[in-house]
Design a protein around this nucleic acid. Structure first.
Length: 346
DNA sequence: CAGGCGTGGAA
DNA sequence: TTTCCAAGCCT
């Protein structure tokens, strides 16, 4: 690297960190900039897992509940699977909850209860990919890791005018970012870039006039700045249909647990058949339309008898008190369907 | 690499 | 209303 490039890199980090010192979002899992204390790796890891593809607003309450109930990685490792899955209900991407438990137990049994401090060590844990390993290494352990999430992709793709479409651009973006990462405060640098992407360099209508690295941004004068980073076209979602069974006896409802893999894997659910492309003949007692990542579902609720109409007989089940249904930890799909039934009854 | 995998808020 | 998409990971 030339002296000029090294100087420009230091200046980039300096401007970003100065802005972060002033404008950092105060978040439950974050140590304020300037604090000499290092954050608890357990809390950093927990937040990073919850924040995968999930908004800060959605995560905040879950983070507070999880860390209050399981204050340390050893507490979480000792928790019952059913309790953790139920506590995760509503947050989505349930493989994260299964991996959260697997990871906590791996840290306890294979790492003496301490998170690995290197990217490679972290990367080997369940549910920890390139992004999360780099983020935890930088934020919790002060390692100069190259952290690249969707916010940082956007900031760098614009700042360097990288027009290669994602996901191919990822390597280019990481290469452009690497020389900018400072040895001092790499965690604040990563969080500063993410805050910049979340609040200034937004997908639409970015507030360039407030940007601390505007001066040398190559996309600054582009009228179509918002098109960066270039993303691949989206595919249309197919429509699917399903039936769920309302099986009630003695003020209790029959709930099953879904198979560990696949949609809503490992979660409690109403019993029902496979979801397929053709609508069911039944009219049902309630109905809900729910949009998943890769298909739309119309789920119809019908009255059923146990066990004949509990079609997934292989699944384990339990009679759950109707008065405590909110505590069952049902995914949003089923919660919406049951809410609809309650509306009909009233 | 491409596709599976949730949800809710913003525009 | 529809579309987009948010601190991705796994296979």
């Amino acid at each position: 690297m030339t002296n000029g490039a090294a100087s420009a890199a230091r200046d980039f980090a300096h401007r970003l960190l100065a802005w972060y010192d002033r404008a950092a979002r105060r978040l439950p899992w974050r140590v304020p900039p300037g604090s000499s204390a290092m954050p608890d790796p357990y809390r950093v890891w927990m937040a990073e897992i919850m924040l995968q593809q999930t908004t800060v607003a959605a995560v905040a309450g879950y983070f507070e509940r999880f860390t209050a109930r399981w204050p340390t990685v050893a507490d979480l490792a000792a928790a019952d699977d059913a309790d953790v899955m139920a506590a995760w209900a509503g947050l989505g991407y349930y493989a994260r909850a299964r991996n959260l438990l697997a990871c906590a137990r791996a840290v306890v049994t294979e790492h003496r209860g301490r998170f690995p401090e290197t990217e490679a060590g972290l990367r080997a844990l369940p549910g920890v990919g390139d992004y999360t390993a780099a983020a935890v290494a930088a934020i919790a352990f002060g390692r100069p890791a190259v952290v690249v999430d969707a916010n940082i992709e956007r900031v760098i793709a614009r700042h360097r005018l990288i027009e290669t479409p994602l996901p191919a651009a990822k390597r280019e973006i990481k290469a452009a970012l690497a020389p900018l990462v400072p040895d001092d405060r790499p965690g604040d640098f990563a969080q500063g870039l993410m805050d910049l992407g979340a609040t200034i360099c937004t997908p639409r209508s970015p507030a360039c006039s407030l940007c601390p690295v505007m001066d040398d941004c190559r996309a600054r004068s582009c009228a179509d700045l918002e098109r960066l980073p270039v993303k691949p076209p989206k595919k249309a979602k197919p429509q699917r249909y399903g039936v769920a069974h309302w099986i009630e006896r003695d003020e209790r409802i029959w709930l099953i647990r879904r198979p560990a893999k696949g949609m809503l894997g490992g979660m409690r659910a109403l019993p029902g058949g496979e979801w397929c492309a053709t609508p069911p003949p039944e009219s049902g007692i309630a109905r809900v339309d729910h949009s998943f990542t890769h298909f739309d579902l119309r789920l119809t609720l019908v009255r059923g008898e146990w066990p004949d109409e509990a079609t997934d007989a292989a699944a384990e089940g339990e009679w759950w008190p109707l008065s405590a249904l909110d505590a069952a930890g049902l995914p949003t799909l089923y919660r919406k369907l049951i809410d609809r039934l309650r509306e009909v009854k009233e």
